[in-house]
């Protein structure tokens, strides 16, 4: 159970560039639920994900995982509970190290790392076993530097690394956005499989409406640093891409109207 309570964040506060990125966002993600967050550019969807991941400290509000308040935890400490896949396919793996070494690091995510040898024969067998489930033929390339693989292959491995030890929460930050269409579809399908198989609780930020209607249990729509709508249950089954686009249009129009009304009022009471 993930609880996000009234998270607020303003970047560059008090300057001309002030950005109110999150204006009181609250969200509950029940155990085993897969949530997708969609929104326009600058809607705060990635900021919300980063707040949960611990990239920055929020100005107010709190984040709880299984009742534990992790708001003040560092990014690296949260890794014990959270697995992450980044938008940049190169961000989740150490390019100069081999596939096997990268996986060995992920096998101890958030756990103490002692002076035992990282790559034993038994560990390698387990790696081959699990890398084979990706169906990319990477099990024969365990000793290649991971930097020699393609973006799609690296992203698939990052996904495998983030879920090697079952995380309490899986965070996916537009993780297919930087891939070519074929790899993107492959990684999206892999994501669906892994989340279903391990019954993971997951939060995915995406710009792809198609993904948003196909993959998750709940769709969260954000705009202007706030959650404007949640689509779940039977409605979630019915919803199609045009419905989502219409909903965003509606939000935008209402906002314009508000702006206009506010302008009229300001003019009258000056």
């Amino acid at each position: 159970m993930i609880e996000v309570r009234d998270i607020r964040k303003t970047f560059f506060a008090g300057t001309a560039n002030e950005v109110r990125a999150l204006r009181g966002v609250s969200l509950d993600i029940p155990e085993g639920c897969f949530v997708a967050v969609i929104g326009t550019n600058g809607s705060g969807k990635s900021t919300l994900l980063n707040a949960i991941a611990g990239t920055f400290a929020p100005d107010a509000g709190e984040v709880r995982i299984d009742g534990r308040d992790i708001t003040r935890w560092s990014e690296s400490r949260r890794a014990r509970l959270i697995g992450r896949v980044f938008q940049n396919p190169f961000a989740g793996t150490a390019a100069g190290m081999t596939v096997a070494e990268n996986l060995a690091i992920a096998m101890r995510r958030g756990q103490p790392r002692g002076l035992g040898i990282a790559l034993s024969r038994r560990v390698r067998d387990e790696m081959i076993e699990r890398v084979r489930t990706l169906k990319m033929g990477l099990e024969t390339r365990l000793d290649n530097p991971i930097g020699t693989l393609s973006g799609g292959q690296r992203q698939a491995l990052t996904l495998l690394m983030a879920t090697w030890l079952k995380p309490r929460l899986l965070l996916l930050d537009e993780h297919t956005a930087a891939l070519d269409p074929k790899s993107a579809a492959q990684v999206a399908e892999l994501t669906r499989q892994i989340i279903r198989r391990d019954k993971l609780t997951a939060l995915m930020v995406t710009h792809s409406m198609q993904q948003a209607v196909e993959l998750p249990d709940v769709i969260v729509m954000m705009h202007g640093g706030q959650i404007v709508r949640q689509v779940a249950g039977a409605e979630r089954e019915r919803v199609r891409v045009p419905d989502l686009l219409a909903a965003f249009d509606h939000v935008r129009r209402r906002e314009q109207l508000d702006e206009g009304v506010a302008g009229v009022l300001r003019a009258q009471y000056r």
Partner: peptide, 23 residues
Amino acid sequence: VTHFGTALRAAGDNAQMIRAQGV
């Protein structure tokens, strides 16, 4: 090549990655 040493090398290679892995 120990768990600790591997993490040390990864920290130099990709700081973001090793933070996400809990170091």
